[in-house]
Nucleic acid binder design. Sequence first.
DNA 1: CTAGCATGTGACCATACGGTCATATGACCG
DNA 2: CGGTCATATGACCGTATGGTCACATGCTAG
Lengths: 233, 233
Amino acid sequence: MPKETFLNLLPDKRSRIEEAAIDEFIAYPYDAAGINRIVEKAGIPKGSFYQYFEDKKDLYLHLLGRIVERKLEYLAPVMENPFQKEFFSLLREIYGAGLRFALSNPRLQRIGTRILADRNNPVLLEFLAASRGKSDVVFHRLLEAAIARGEIRRDIDIPMSAHLISELSQSVADYYLEREGARYDESYMEYVDRMIDFLRNGIGVPPDRGGQGDPGERHQKPDPPTAEGKDAR
Amino acid sequence: MPKETFLNLLPDKRSRIEEAAIDEFIAYPYDAAGINRIVEKAGIPKGSFYQYFEDKKDLYLHLLGRIVERKLEYLAPVMENPFQKEFFSLLREIYGAGLRFALSNPRLQRIGTRILADRNNPVLLEFLAASRGKSDVVFHRLLEAAIARGEIRRDIDIPMSAHLISELSQSVADYYLEREGARYDESYMEYVDRMIDFLRNGIGVPPDRGGQGDPGERHQKPDPPTAEGKDAR
DNA sequence: CTAGCATGTGACCATACGGTCATATGACCG
DNA sequence: CGGTCATATGACCGTATGGTCACATGCTAG
């Protein structure tokens, strides 16, 4: 963790250093990221940097901590009593929170993407094993509960679905950022709703039902944007 | 591209160099990969290396070329007349081919994963823009055709679905490798079938139908392992 | 003004990088 | 044998890396 001297810095200077470091870790994977470029961009001498951090790894882990801390600010309110919520409306809130995080902190989101790519770097191993595995486990339990409540098909492959749902959370954010940039548009929940629809109903035409009329009404609709949930069954 | 001297090498020596380079690019992102480690592992002097390749980029692009070349060997037979095949059975073949490639060439697959992480490296930009974008476009067209044939819901978000389908191809291979290692088991198509089921039917319980009996039969089944396709509708 | 102490600072370290090049090697030809 | 050629080789180059350290600076206390 950073040294006391770093915490005692003027907030302005402190954040100048953090921002410079974020830029660097967006542009380069861990091994290729350079302290020299960071201190230059931050406008501090190199010696000073080592007054603030033990080494490169110290800085990196500090940044990762800041990222998860920030992301949790978005996610925590949504994750209260998750087992009491209908699965898809919970998932909708989770994806929505993830997308709001990505839109409000696009640079942090990009580091997250970069990290996934660098996943076999020793520096990241413990950090990743903890946070990434956790996500799969949470969705696994949520799926089990939802199946028990009859909201989810009983015959799905739970670990695989949990894994995909967990991955798609990153995907929807990356996809939105790539398409729309960081324009913080009100329409962002439409992407989430389409994603939820994708997960809930699949893309195949429904197999049964005599009437072949209007496909739009044959599927469960996403929750209306304002409601808290609990529509289906 | 490699110099003539490289092509004239004894096949044994040539592949020793390629294998060493593959190991290096699995272990490190492009910027951090080192020529010194490669030549050491390959057991050749550094000077010799530069008789064979212009520079690091030359070697890297050569390897990428080999990877796509190899992957196409698996994919090409499947992609003949793609518009004449039923969408989900084509998709099943595509995912199956991707998984067979990953299982037979796990180290090449891992480089592929690494590349995606390194996507904003200038060396990769043109290469990636071409191959990755293409994949989305192909699925986009296939989806349109399938919708016209009534195999796919008319109300899906086509670009998003194309993107997700394209991403999930990598996901299923990574997921399998992580769970089963490179054990080339006959069961690998079960993963593909579960993935296809996931895409076709979603994970939500079907919205309609009075009878609530056995969920397994309410959905369209994947093609039987041996058949070439065209079952549904 | 002096002493003590936290903090700022950039020259400097060993090491490693990608890449070069003068020279050595060895095969073929006359 | 001498000459010519492609190839093999590792010492070497400039540059950059992560990290260190002796010293400078400035604040507070006596």
